[in-house]
C-alpha cells in the first residue's frame, strides 16, 4: 500500500506505525509471550477505539440535530424521557457486558502468560544502582557465570529470570520479550519468557531508582541453542593471560589503580563484587548499562569521565595518566 504523504491521515498512520518497530518496543515482539501481549493490546485498542468513536458520534449527532426552542427548561416530553432511559439503560448494559468480556479476556491471558514450565536456563538478575548483576546458576559451581548488563538466552526455550535487589526497587523490562516485573529488596520475584527469533533486544529499568535511572539499560541477546552453549562455556572460563606487552601493561595498571576496589576479573587478583564483573568485558555489546556501544573510544571515554556521561553514577572519576589510558583500554577490550 502506498500512502501519499500529503494526506494528514497518512502522516498519522505512519506515526502510529513508526511506533511498531524498535529494539525496545512492546509492539515488536520477539517471543510468544510478547506476541500474546501485543495481540491483547491491539484487541483492547480496537474495542476502546470503537467505543470512543461511538461516543463521539452520539455527541456530534446530539449537537447537530435540530431541537425546538426551550423557553421552559422544565417542560420535558415524557415519551422522549422514556426513550432516553431505554437507550441509556441499553448503553450501560452494553458497557457492563464489554467490561466483563474484557476482564475475562485479560484474566485468561494472564493465566496463560504467567504459567510456568521447566526452564532451559535460570538466570539470577540482581538490580543495583544503576547496573544489572547477571548470574547464570548451575548445579556445578565451576559452571556458574557472572556477568553484567547483558543476558544471553537460547532461542525457542523458556528462560526463567529470578529477580532480586540489594538496595532499592528496580524493574526488569525487556518489552520485546515480556512485561516487566519489579526487583524488590527482600522479595524473590521471578518471570519466565521465551525468545522465538535470534536477535538483540534492549531493556531498561522501569522503576525510578535515582539519578541514573534513565541510563540503566540492559541487553538481551538470543542465540541458537548451540551458540548459546558455546557462549556460556566461554564465559565460565577465567580471563586469559595477556600476551602482548601493551595488554600486560594494561593489566598492571588495572591492578594498581582504583579499578580492583570494585571490579572482578576472574583469573587475576581483582575480586571485588561492588561493581560489574569485567572478566569478559570485551565480548559485550555495550558499556555502562547499555548506554554506550562497545568500542575502544567509548571505553576510554567511560574510564576518563564516567561522571560526565552519567552524572551521579557510582563509578568515580579516577586519575589516569595519558600514557596509561591506551594500555588499559587495550587490556579491557581484549577481555573477551
Amino acid at each position: 500500500m502506498r500512502f501519499s504523504l500529503k494526506s494528514p491521515a497518512a502522516v498519522l498512520i505512519l506515526c502510529l506505525l513508526g511506533g511498531c518497530s524498535g529494539a525496545q518496543s512492546a509492539l515488536d515482539p520477539g517471543g510468544p509471550q510478547a506476541q500474546h501481549l501485543a495481540r491483547l493490546f491491539w484487541i483492547f485498542t480496537g474495542v476502546c477505539t470503537v467505543v470512543w468513536v461511538a461516543v463521539m458520534l452520539v455527541l456530534l449527532a446530539s449537537l447537530v440535530r435540530r431541537t425546538p426552542a426551550r423557553p421552559d427548561p422544565l417542560r420535558l416530553d415524557a415519551r422522549s424521557e422514556r426513550r432516553s432511559l431505554a437507550v441509556v439503560g441499553g448503553a450501560v448494559f452494553a458497557t457492563l457486558l464489554t467490561i466483563i468480556a474484557l476482564t475475562a479476556l485479560s484474566y485468561l491471558s494472564q493465566r496463560q502468560l504467567f504459567a510456568r514450565e521447566r526452564p532451559a536456563v535460570t538466570i539470577k538478575v540482581t538490580g543495583q544502582q544503576w547496573w544489572w548483576d547477571v548470574r547464570y546458576e548451575s548445579d556445578a559451581p565451576d559452571r556458574t557465570v557472572t556477568t553484567a548488563n547483558e543476558i544471553y538466552i537460547p532461542v525457542g526455550r523458556p528462560v526463567t529470570v529470578k529477580l532480586a535487589a540489594t538496595d532499592l526497587i528496580h524493574s526488569f523490562w525487556v518489552p520485546s520479550l515480556f512485561g516487566k516485573q519489579d526487583l524488590i529488596p527482600g522479595q524473590d520475584n521471578e518471570i519466565q519468557f521465551t525468545a522465538s527469533r535470534p536477535g538483540v533486544y534492549r531493556g531498561q529499568c522501569a522503576e525510578f531508582c535515582g539519578w541514573q535511572h534513565a541510563h540503566m539499560g540492559l541487553v538481551v541477546v538470543a542465540l541458537p541453542a548451540n551458540e548459546f552453549q558455546n557462549w556460556l562455556t566461554a564465559q565460565a572460563a577465567p580471563a586469559a593471560e595477556p600476551e602482548d606487552a601493551e595488554r600486560k601493561r594494561g593489566a598492571e595498571i588495572f591492578a594498581a589503580k582504583a579499578c580492583i576496589m570494585c571490579h572482578t576479573v576472574r583469573g587475576t587478583s581483582a575480586g571485588s563484587r561492588v561493581g560489574p564483573d569485567l572478566t569478559h568485558f570485551g565480548s559485550r555489546k555495550t558499556i555502562a548499562s547499555a548506554t554506550l556501544p562497545m568500542s575502544r573510544g567509548n571505553i576510554a571515554a567511560w574510564i576518563v569521565d564516567p561522571q560526565g556521561i552519567k552524572p551521579g553514577v557510582n563509578m568515580p572519576n579516577v586519575s589516569i595518566a595519558s600514557n596509561e589510558l591506551d594500555p588499559l583500554v587495550s587490556y579491557l577490550a581484549g577481555l573477551r
Binding site: A26, H36, L37, L40, F41, F44, T45, C48, V51, W52, V55, M56, L59, L63, I99, L102, T103, L105, S106, S109, Q110, L113, S171, P175, F178, G179, K180, Q181, A206, E207, F208
Partner: peptide, 29 residues
C-alpha cells in the same frame, strides 16, 4: 464537550492499563 472527548480516551486507556498483562508492558512508561 472537550472534557467528554478527552476524558473518554483517558477512561478507555484506563481500561487497558487495568488489565494485568497489558499493565505489565505499559506500567511506569
Amino acid at each position: 464537550l472537550g472534557f467528554i472527548a478527552i476524558f473518554v480516551i483517558g477512561g478507555l486507556s484506563g481500561v487497558m492499563v487495568a488489565s494485568v498483562p497489558i499493565d505489565a508492558q505499559v506500567h511506569d512508561t
